[in-house]
Amino acid sequence: MSAATEALGRRRVGVGEAVTSWIRRSPWIVALIGLLVVFFAITKMLVPNYGAPGVQALGISILPNALAAVAQAIVVISGGIDLSVGSMMALTSVVSAVLMKGQSDIFAVGVVLGTLALGVLLGAINGALIVATRVPDIVVTLAMSFVWAGVALLIIHTPGGGAAPWLMETIRGPLVSEWIPRGLVVLAVLVGAIWIPLRRSNLGLSLFAIGSNRLAAFRSGVPVDRMKIVSYALTGLFSSLAGLALTANTGNASPVPGPYTLESIAAIVLGGVSLAGGRGGVVGPILAVAVLYLIRIDLQFIGINPNFGTVVQGVILIGVVMLGSFLALRRVRP
């Protein structure tokens, strides 16, 4: 009997080799997909008529968080951490909304491009400060989070500005099917257009290299300081995308940073990115953002105080890191 199942298993490997090898390589993502399915099932049980509108809401709501998580993932994979993601989002959102208000569509295109360039600049400043001063990443980005948020507040005091209609339409509503929110399509396109080619390029390899082992990267000929700045610039780029998503989502901008920095850290940790650098990707963090979102609305549906969502998030953040260090300890011991 065991021989029979073995033979069967071997044939199956032959058929779906690509799938199985992918599953073997990314157990964490498979687990997250499973978790996501479980929470969808729970949601469906709690609210029997949860369906396309719920998915639409999810698509719109998670876009800024997901982009923030991608931003954080890139810098953490490269061995850093950026506590100013939320502030950069606020600043880029404010700049885009103020410049776009009452302007033509064409002008708005220019504003969007300019905002992305601003994001790259903000991130590059963070990275350059870290490289130049040798002050730890945490201190520099914590301090810069105040600088960027302060600049946003200097531009406008209260929520304001506007968004070009086409920008808002890009992320709102369904595409083709009512089950496919445009927000998720935009997310997929952005990740597909920026992250996937990057990851396969030498640049992407260098980012993983400096996060994984700085000395080995240096000895492999990677310009480690320049790559560090590049990693922060990319984080700035995705933060500005997240900022634009905020603008497009609400039609205006708030100068006060939301809780996106914290959430991005929780998401990348849950999404399988190692805080020590070098390991992880951006798909895991995006799935983690969706899981965190579902946890929050499920708690709402049960009628539990939504503030428990924060508690759960904090517990998940701590719990996952504890689990990670526990597993790492086990691995060291033979």
């Binding site: 503030n307 428990f308 508690v311 904090g314």
Partner: peptide, 20 residues
Amino acid sequence: VHPLIMTLGMSLVVLGLVAV
């Protein structure tokens, strides 16, 4: 757990519990 993560996580937990 890294102090930054632990204390950030604890502040989330504490804030949530206080709100409840």
